[in-house]
Structures are given as C-alpha cells and as structure tokens.
Design a protein around this nucleic acid. Structure first.
Ligand SMILES: [Mg+2]
Length: 988
DNA sequence: GACCTACTAAACACCC
DNA sequence: GGGGTGTTTAGTAGGT
C-alpha cells in the first residue's frame, strides 16, 4: 500500500514523472513546498516528497478521492512538486531504479527495426515532427495553464534555456512541442494510470513511479494485475507472474492506446477546445499535466513486465512500496512479478529508468523550472539542454525513436546525432548524452509471446510491438480499444473519470487485483474477466470472448470535453489521423479507429457506429486510398496526389478569385468615382457587375470541384452575388478615405466589417425567424440601413484593426444624414432596389446601428427585420427557437449530452464528389485555426479541404467573422465566405 | 420544395 | 463460421 500510496499517479504530474538522476542524489527540496501546496493537504504532512505525494496520491487512491480527482490544480502542484522532488519523482516517471546493471536482461526482441541513422533521421523529421505538432498546441495550452497555475515556471524554463543557449531555446521550443506530445502521452498514461490508480489505489498512479521505484508493491501489482488482466491478453509472453504485471501493463496498454492516443490527445483537446473555449484549454492543460503525471506510470506493456521480470524480479515490486528504492532493483518478487510495467527502460550506470509513457523527455532539470517537463534529469551540466532528447513512440513506424533536441546532440550507438535528428531505437541501443551513457532496452517480447501483442499498441501503445506486428496489433488494438473503452475514461478523461464513480468502478474492475496473473482481460466494466481463464495468460481474447460489449458511458462518465462530437467531418478526421499516425505502409482500420480515438476522445465514449462512417468515408472519399493489403483488410493512406491536385486547384481558384476581386474592386472604385463625379442620378447600374462571382470568393478546390454544380445554383447565387457585390461596393466607398491606413489594414478592416455585417444581419434575421437571405432583403428593402450597418462595422473594424488609433474610417451620419454620400453612390447592383440613400433617413435604425460607429450594433438589425417581415414571413418564434448561430451540425452539441446521439457533423461525403474530401474541410476552418495551421497540413484541409468549403458555408456563418478577420483576406474572400460558404461551389 | 452535403445504418460480399 | 473489412445503397437531417 504504501508504495502505492507513495505516489499516486495523480500526483505525478508529467513533471513529476520525471526522474532525476540528480534527484536521487539531490535534494528533494522544493517538493515539499509544492507538495504543501497540494492542496490536498494530505500530502503535505506526509512527507517528504515522496510521501507527500503519496499522500495525495493516497487520498486519490481511494477511488472516491481519486475521482474527486485532485483538481487539476492539485495535480499540477503535485507535479511541480514532484519535479522538484527527487526520489519520488524519479520513481514516478520512469521508474528509476538504481539499478543493478544486471538487470535481468530483457530480452528484447528486436522488434524494432533498426534502421540506419540516416534513415532514421529522415523518418524523424517526418513522423516525429508531425507528432509533435499536435503537441505543440497542447503545449501552448499547457503552458498557459502552467503559467496560470504554477506560475511562472514556464518562463523560467524558457529563460534558462535561453541562458543556456539560444539554441536551447529552440530546443526548448521543440521540446515544448515534444512536451506536448509527452503530455499527451502522459495524459494517456495518466488516464491509464488514473484508472489503475483508482483501482490499484494509488499504484496505478504510481505505476510509473511505482514501477520505478517500487517494486511494486504487490498490492499495486495486484491491482495492476487486474489491469493486467486486460493486458494479459496482450502479452502472454511474460511469465505468468509477469503476465500479471504485464497485464497491468497491458492495462496500461489499453491505456496505452489511450496513451498512444494521448499523444494525439492533445489534438483532441484542441478539437475539444474548439468546442469549448478557454476553459477547455485550461482543462486541457490540466489534463495534460495530469496525464503527464499519470503518464508516468502507465503503460506497461508486457514488455515492461518482461523487463521487469527480467530485470529481475528485482523491482518486483515490493509491495511496500519501496518504490523509490526499487529503483534499486531488485528484488523482488519474483513471482508476482516485478511488475514494473514499462514500454522499455533506460539503463544508466547507476539506475534504471522505466519508460512507461510513450514520450519521455530527457534533459536537465532546472530546479525552479517546473514548466519544463523532464522525465529523466541527466545532470545539471549545462552541456545537457533542458530538453536534450526525447524518446517517443512513433506510431507511424511502430517503434520508439529518439529525437535529439539538445544543441550538443548525442551519440547513438556511437554515432553522433545532431540536434534535430531522430533516430529509431531498438533494443539495447546505446545512447550518450553529455557525459552520461545509457542504454535503451526493450522488454523481451518473447516472453510475451509476441512482443507486441499487446494490443493496444497500435496507436496507443505502440511500443509494444513497435515494429513488428502491426497487424497483430490490430487485433490487439482492438482489444486494446475495447479495453480502453472499458477503461476509457481513465485514459482520456482523466479528470472526468476521476470524477465519475462509475468510471472509478470501472477502473477498479480493471485494476482489480484479483486476477492476478493470468487473466488479463479487460475489464471494461463488464468484464467478466475474472473468469477463469486459462491459465495462462494473457489471452485477452479468451476473455474477450465474452467480449465486452462496448461500454456505454453515462454522461457523467464522459469528460465534458469529450461529450460533443467533433465538428470536423470524418474526412477531416481521417485525414488528420492518417497524416499524423500513418506509416508509409498505411494504417489499418483498427489503427485508424484508435487514432481517431486518440485525436478525438469523443469517439472513445460514444457508441459504436462511427466506425461504419469511417469505413464509408475511406471507401468513398478519393482522398483515401488503399496502400497495401494486410491481414483482413487494407492499410489505408492518403492519396496525396489527389489531395495535392485539389490543393492546386484550390490555389488556382484562389488566385483567380483574388485577381477577380482585385479587378472588381478597382472597377468599383473607378465606377464609383465616376459616379460621384457625374453624380449621375440613376447611375444605378454599376456596369458590369463585376462578376458577382467575383465577389471574390476564391474558389476552393472543393468549389472547383463543385463548380460544375455550382453553375446550377447560379440562379440562386444571383441574389447572393448581387448582395455581395453591393456590400463590396459599399465597403469600397466607405473606405475610400483610408486615412493613411495601409492596404493591408484596410483589407483587414474590410474583411472584418464584411464579416461583421454578414454575421450580424444573418443572426438578427435568424433571431427574427427570417429565413432566406437577410442581407439581400435588407439591401433591397432598406439599403440605407444596410449601409449604416456597414459603416458601423467598418468603424468598429477600423478601431479594432488599428487598436483604437483610428476610431472611425467613416463618418457616421449622426442620424439622418448619413455619411451616405458615399453610400448613396451605391446601388445594389442589379436589382432593384436601389436604396435611396439619399435619405439617410431611417435614422432610427441607422442611429442605432451607427451607434457606434465604433461600436457595431447589430441589434439594430433586429429592428429592421421585425418590421420587415413583409418580405419574409418570419415566424419569429420558430426561428427564434433555433439557435441563432447556424452551427453546423451542431446537433452534436445539442445532443451533446447524448453522447450517443450523433451529432455530428459533418462530414464528408463525397459522394460524388468524388471528392471526397471536400466536404470535410468545412470544419477545417475551425480546425484551421487551430490545428491546421499547426499541422500545417492543413491537413485536414487537404483531404478534406474541399469539403471545407462546403462546411465553410455552415461554419462561415458562425465564424465568418473570425475567419474573415483572421485571415484578413480580401474583401472578396470575405464575401465569399460570408455569404454562403457553400456557395463556394456556387461561386463558380 | 428541390438540391446538396454529411452522416448513419444496413445489407452484402470478401477475406482471414 | 465468426468477425473484421470494404462497398454499396437507402434514408435522414440540416442547409441553401
Ligand atoms: Mg477512397
């Protein structure tokens, strides 16, 4: 127990997890304080760091408590503490044991293929990079949180880094990214851990630490064993006892998936974030941290076990928890198995660090820096960067890889690897960072039967099998998935899970000790596992038979962030997933499922059914192609050519659109000028509409694709185009006097103003229950009002764009007189109504609208509309009922609660399109901001991009402003967006 | 109301 | 033969 208590998973923050070599030797100082901070309070007293931590952990251990989950804060604190702490921390993270070199040899199969460094390098950049990308986001979030919670530490780190070297900074950045990854991993782990912890009571959380230190107390192990059960299947290999451990590990494995996912989790978070804003971010951060903490623990694959066992029972966990000591090694319980579950271990001269998470950061910890997560603190030597290297599991390659972040590089198998390079790690790979040599050791796979078997690996767990068996993984993965699902909560949600009793219970089940060794099984809740299983081990499958139906989560069990369906389409999901996790060989369906779960935890909790959609998408969407056949099915990959083609088209169209827009603007300006001069009364016709089309919309690929269709729509477009044209013209007029603002600024202002106008009008109309195109209606019926709105929007946008330097670009008509002069010029292009600007009349509305020129007041619109109805009947009520904002298939949201429901969104479909992907893109927008960008890939976009457009339409409404503003694109663009996004197609 | 897009579900056929 | 996989079709829902 103690041991378990020692370090609660929770407590461990990612950082916590970190293991300092130094720590061992060094002090534990800070920890205490931090610990004290821990709110839990429990801990504080306790002890030394370790204890304290433990305490918290302990408390947490109790499921209830645990669930209570240490608030993020606590977790964070803890983490920090841990960091500071030496021993425990060490334990936590990895498991460091002192080690006896002798560790039983792990036999590692070399599943991992060794590749040439060069090769590796290549890989690194690619794959590794991607992974990290996701993390980056997380990191940001994390940092933010960190800052908030912890305080400044992050800054410290950075500073330190800087101090160290400019490069370091870079490294740090990288690190950050990595960290993110780590976080993710950790998170996953944490989840797992948490679960385990919950079950184990602390152990789980501790796992990492426990493992590390402890030899695992039996209890812990037992608990694990429970978890192990799940794992069991996974890694049969290990001896029975080991098996148990393994199981635990497997459990972890399960989590592993999650863990694996955890990496992605970040992204998920992002997505989630999308759903929920800042709060979510914070949560993420918290999660991240927590996860991290937890992450320390986790996993476990059999390998670990194996390792452990091999290592000797050494570690074996003493129940007691010697945890910390364990590091030492040894000991242990043979039978039960040592239990440390880990994906791999790092054998240092004086200690051993167990890699229990999918991402381990190796570097130099600065005492005050909590922000940086350093799982393995090599030395205070400046020659070692804070984040000098990171070991992570590359799902794409299915193996662990070492990415060198530190400026001074490192030696891998006696080959110098410069910073920025990534090298694959295989069993017994020698690594030297600074003056510290160590060896990367994988657990024997043999024992486990298949090295990887562990299921999860696929995405999550990767480690296990890393290499080989991807396929097998599939199965295992599935298992894992299931397992995950079972435990899911844990993993993903950490937090929530904690909260949820049910979850806890589930966890408990999972962890339950009972089973011990042999049976793994997963427990997902239902799990029958205990069943007698064959003795042996691991055959999860055996257990599976009972196959646990996927657990149905209650709302409470699902973390709030994961209750809503991601807004992105399946095509976007798939694109992102494949981009991020796929190996050159492609991804199997099960891997894809796992990847999606990782990226979007929502899918961990929702009822099955989405897989069908995924398959449907893969088949129909041309962006996805079969890469190679493996096992029952194919390995899927992205059809980059197709995607690239689409991209090209997209760009092309964008360029064309831009050109048109520019031309149109000029024309308009000229025309307007002429008009002004001539003062021609009826000038109405502006001359060619400059293509309404031109509105500037850039056609996206999808659009292009859809172009054909678009034509059909043209008719409908007319109004839209006309309206856009009108708006564009008006804007141009309104911004004639640029007041010295740069074109860019003006463009931004125009964009924002347009977006604001569209949004406000649209929303106001919706609120009023007006369907149809309110802008057009307004333009036709009350152009003055529209002009005022535009003017107000322009001023608001101007103020915003210039940070208040220029509050007005347009002189708002005090009341009646509008500044209309300008406005007057205009007329809605074609049609009809020409606004009689002259009158500036409508002061009322105008005024309101005008309100601030600076302040844009949409409300005025409502007024407008109300009366207006004539034009459209708007049953206000009904419409009103609807959410004003057109969310895309927000249903989800609505449904959010119902996880099951579907919500969802978007998607792709392609159908015809062939395109496939196009559709998805819509979301992208959102994503774009977030992810895409980051990823750059735009990935999502890529495949889906097209879709995006479509989506855009929907989104646009919502975010039109944002997008527009963000992008600061040209007016035309904005228009395009604003109007109907979909229109894109239409545009054509 | 017609069309689209996106999603879901189900039916089938394949393959392991 | 079960189950995963891949394809196809039908139906639905929200949006334009
Ligand atoms: Mg396809």
């Amino acid at each position: 127990m103690d041991a378990i208590q020692h370090v609660p998973n929770d407590t461990k923050p990612a950082e916590l997890s970190s293991y300092d070599i130094n720590d061992h030797m060094m002090e534990e100082n800070d920890v205490e304080t931090q610990i004290g901070a821990l709110a839990a309070g429990q801990a504080q007293g306790e002890e030394d760091v370790g204890m304290e931590i433990t305490d918290t952990a302990t408390s947490h251990n109790d499921e209830s408590v645990f669930h209570g989950v240490p608030s993020i804060e606590e977790a964070d604190i803890i983490n920090t503490n841990f960091e500071s702490q030496p021993n425990e921390e060490q334990q936590v993270q990895g498991i460091q044991e002192e080690h006896v070199d002798d560790a039983p040899s792990l036999e590692l199969p070399d599943n991992i293929d060794h590749e040439d460094l060069s090769r590796l390098l290549e890989l690194d950049t690619k794959q590794g990079g991607e992974i990290f990308d996701a993390d980056e986001i997380l990191e940001h979030a994390m940092r933010g949180e960190a800052e908030v919670s912890s305080g400044s530490e992050t800054g410290d780190e950075d500073e330190e880094d800087k101090n160290e070297s400019g490069k370091d900074e870079d490294n740090e950045d990288e690190d950050d990214d990595e960290d993110d990854d780590d976080d993710d991993d950790d998170d996953d782990e944490e989840e797992e851990d948490s679960e385990e912890d919950g079950n184990d009571k602390g152990h789980a959380g501790n796992e990492a630490s426990q493992q590390i230190t402890e030899a695992p107390s039996r209890d812990g192990r037992l608990a694990r064993s429970n978890s192990v059960e799940k794992d069991a299947t996974v890694s049969p290999k290990v001896a029975a006892s080991d098996a148990e451990d393994i199981r635990t590990s497997s459990v972890a494995a399960i989590p592993g998936e999650s863990s694996g996912s955890s990496l992605k989790a970040q992204r998920l978070f992002k997505h989630e974030d999308e759903h929920s804003p800042a709060a979510i971010l914070q949560e993420r951060g918290d999660l991240m941290r927590r996860k991290r903490h937890d992450s320390l623990t986790p996993v476990m694959f059999q390998q670990h076990e194996i390792l452990m066992s091999q290592m000797q029972g050494q570690n074996s966990i003493d129940e007691d928890g010697v945890q910390g000591q364990q590091g030492e090694n040894g000991i242990s319980l043979p039978d039960e198995q040592p239990t440390i579950s880990a994906y791999a271990r790092l054998d240092f001269q004086s200690f051993t660090f167990y890699v229990q998470t999918l991402h381990v950061i190796i570097g130099r910890r600065s005492e005050n820096d909590f922000s940086h997560k350093v799982d393995v603190n090599l030395s205070p030597s400046k020659s070692i960067s804070r984040r000098h290297a990171q070991i992570f599991y590359n799902f794409g390659t299915g193996r662990f890889e070492l990415s060198i972040i530190g400026k001074n590089g490192a030696f891998v198998d006696d080959i110098f690897v410069e910073r920025g390079n990534t090298v694959p790690l295989r069993n017994k790979t020698k690594i030297q960072i600074g003056q510290i040599p160590f060896q990367f050791v994988l657990p024997d796979q043999e024992k486990g039967e298949q090295p990887q078997k562990s299921p999860e690996p696929p995405l999550s767990a990767g480690p296990e099998e890393l290499d080989s068996k991807v396929k097998e993984e599939n199965e295992s993965k599935k298992l894992l998935e299931e397992i995950k699902t079972a435990s899911p909560v844990v993993s993903d949600t950490n937090i929530t899970l904690e909260n949820d009793p049910a979850i806890a219970a589930a966890h408990a089940e999972i962890t339950h000790p009972k089973p011990i060794p042999a049976k793994p099984t997963l427990p997902p809740q239902p799990q029958p596992q205990p069943q007698p299983q064959p003795s042996t081990v691991k055959r999860e499958r055996e257990r599976r038979p009972p196959k646990v139906p996927k657990k149905v989560y209650s709302l409470e069990e699902i973390p709030p962030e994961y209750r809503t369906k991601p807004t992105c389409s399946y095509s976007a999901l798939l694109t992102e997933c494949i981009r991020k996790y796929s190996s050159p060989k492609g991804m199997s369906l099960s891997e894809i499922y796992a990847g999606i779960r990782e990226l979007f935890p929502y899918y961990k909790y929702c009822p099955d059914g989405w897989q069908s959609s995924v398959r449907h998408n893969l088949s129909l969407n041309k962006s996805f192609r079969k890469v190679s056949k493996e096992g029952k099915g194919w390995l899927w990959g992205l059809d980059e050519d197709y995607i690239a083609e689409r991209e090209r088209q997209k760009k092309k169209q964008a360029e064309i659109a831009a050109a048109k827009a520019a031309a149109a603007q000029e024309r308009l300006e000229q025309q307007q000028q002429q008009r002004a001069r001539k003062a021609a009364s009826g000038s109405s016709s502006s001359g060619g509409r400059y293509d309404g089309k031109s509105n500037g919309r850039q056609q996206s690929i999808s659009q292009t694709l859809a172009a054909n269709r678009a034509t059909d729509k043209k008719s409908s477009m007319n109004d839209h185009q006309r309206t856009m044209k009108y708006l564009q013209e008006q804007l141009i007029i309104l911004t004639k006097n640029r007041k010295g603002l740069s074109n860019q600024t003006i463009a931004s202002i125009l964009t924002q103003a347009l977006a604001m106008t569209i949004n406000q009008v649209t929303q106001a109309a919706k609120n009023k229950g007006i369907s149809g195109n309110p802008l057009t209606a307004l333009m036709d019926k009350n152009p003055q009002h529209l002009n005022l709105i535009l003017a107000a929007a322009v001023n608001a946008a101007t103020s915003k764009a210039t940070n208040g330097k220029v509050k007005q670009l347009v002189n708002m008509p005090s009341s009646s007189e509008n500044s209309n002069t300008q406005i007057k010029t205009q007329t809605p292009s074609s049609q009809t109504t020409k606004p009689s600007y002259s009158s500036a009349t409508n002061s009322n509305k105008t005024n309101t609208s005008a309100k601030g020129s600076s302040s844009f007041d949409p409300t005025s619109l409502s007024r407008f509309f109300q009366p207006r109805q004539p034009t459209r009947v708007s049953p206000p009520s009904s419409s009103s009922s609807k959410p004003t904002i057109p969310q895309k298939r927000t249903h989800d949201q609505d449904g959010d609660e119902s996880s099951t429901s579907d919500d969802s969104p978007d998607s792709d479909d392609e159908e015809e399109n062939t395109d496939d992907g196009n559709k998805g893109s819509g979301k992208d927008d959102d994503d774009d901001d977030d992810d895409d960008d980051d990823d750059s890939n735009s990935s999502a976009s890529s495949g889906d991009d097209d879709d995006d457009n479509h989506n855009n339409g929907k989104d646009d409404k919502k975010s039109s402003n944002e997008t527009a503003s963000n992008r600061g694109e040209e007016i035309s663009n904005v228009l395009g967006a604003g109007s109907n996004t979909d229109t894109n197609d239409s545009q054509v």
